[in-house]
Design a protein around this nucleic acid. Structure first.
Length: 307
DNA sequence: GTCGGAG
DNA sequence: CTCCGACAACGCATC
DNA sequence: GATGCG
């Protein structure tokens, strides 16, 4: 029984192994999320959460859970997300805005947290524009291309009047995110992401593609602009990934992105906390930089007209 | 990890 | 009682 | 129309 904020939590089976190779236990996972809660929560607050659970460790098949389980305590906040496809249906997501929820879920063997680019009260007005750079493999040359792409899209977003932020995905690539002021509809945001991604692919077709077709990709970095859609999700900042080494999706400064030794799995459950002791969260306060997508679209049109 | 239904 | 399955689903592309 | 993929 531990106290987390206002809540008392019963932890169970803390010695159970979650990451066999590294002997990382469920207790280690709980400790990790407890310790990063202060920096992580601002990125989860008021967003429908989707969770990836591994009840027998990451070596066994896990599952994705979008609806809050019936037996979760009543103090865990829930939020309805209506299905766009089927009228009348909705999922009932957990909303994680206190440390106790994060710790409770970790004890439930939730390893990875996925969030939407929208908040619960405005499900069709995104406050995040997302670019997901997914390389064909985890090799060094692939990551070099991912880095070039992130820098290029960052520059493009600045030219459009937005303020981009970057993080490792913890898997193979990088995520670039720009905060929005929620004045534009999700379909407009998606259209912007598509056009900007296509521009990037057109400027450097040897490195980038927006084609979903596997045959068309041929070793190039895939720009997944569909991340900006209704009920789409992205891995949350400081979330652990269910991969060997327990890599963590970690916010970076743009200067850090230039470091030649950096890769998508540089930061892990083992070393992120030390990093956070030395520097503040590079994404802290990102909402103060929220920009207008309509303004950005006009600027992007001007850039396209010149090109 | 936990529930609920099947056996 | 124990055993076992469920715990997601957008939008595009290909077969 | 069903299946596959991120």
């Amino acid at each position: 029984m531990i106290g987390v904020g206002e809540r008392m939590l019963e932890l169970s089976n803390e010695r159970a192994v979650m990451f066999p190779k590294e002997r990382i236990t469920k207790g280690d996972l709980v400790d990790y999320y407890l310790e990063v809660a202060a920096v992580m929560l601002p990125h989860l607050e008021n967003r429908p959460l989707t969770v990836e659970r591994f009840t027998k460790g990451i070596g066994a098949r896990g599952f994705i859970q979008k609806n809050a389980s019936e037996h979760y305590p009543e103090w865990i906040r829930r939020s309805e997300v209506p299905s766009r496809a089927r009228a009348g249906e909705a999922s009932n997501h957990v909303v994680c805005d206190e440390a106790a929820t994060l710790v409770f879920l970790a004890n439930q063997r939730c390893v990875t947290y996925h969030i939407t680019p929208v908040q619960c009260d405005r499900l069709e007005l995104p406050d995040r524009l997302i670019f997901d750079f997914d390389p064909p493999d985890a090799g060094e040359s692939s990551f070099a291309a991912v880095r070039v792409g992130a820098l290029a899209v960052g520059e493009l977003l600045r030219e459009c009047g937005l303020t981009p932020f970057v993080k490792t995905s913890g898997s193979k690539g990088l995520h670039v995110v720009a905060p929005l002021d929620r004045s534009a509809h999700i379909d407009e945001v998606r259209a912007f992401g598509k056009i900007a991604s296509e521009l990037l692919a057109r400027r450097d077709p040897d490195r980038f593609t927006v084609s979903m077709a596997k045959s068309e990709r041929a070793g190039r970095v895939f720009l997944d602009y569909l991340r900006n859609g209704y009920a789409q999700t992205v891995v949350a900042p400081y979330s652990v990934r269910p991969l060997p080494g327990a890599p963590v999706s970690t916010p970076l400064t743009w200067e850090e992105l230039e470091e030649p030794t950096l890769h998508a799995q540089t930061y892990t459950l083992r070393n992120v906390r030390e990093r956070l002791r030395e520097r503040r969260d590079p994404w802290a306060g990102m909402d103060a930089h929220a920009g207008s997508l309509d303004d950005a679209s006009l600027n992007l049109d001007a850039i396209l007209a010149k090109a």
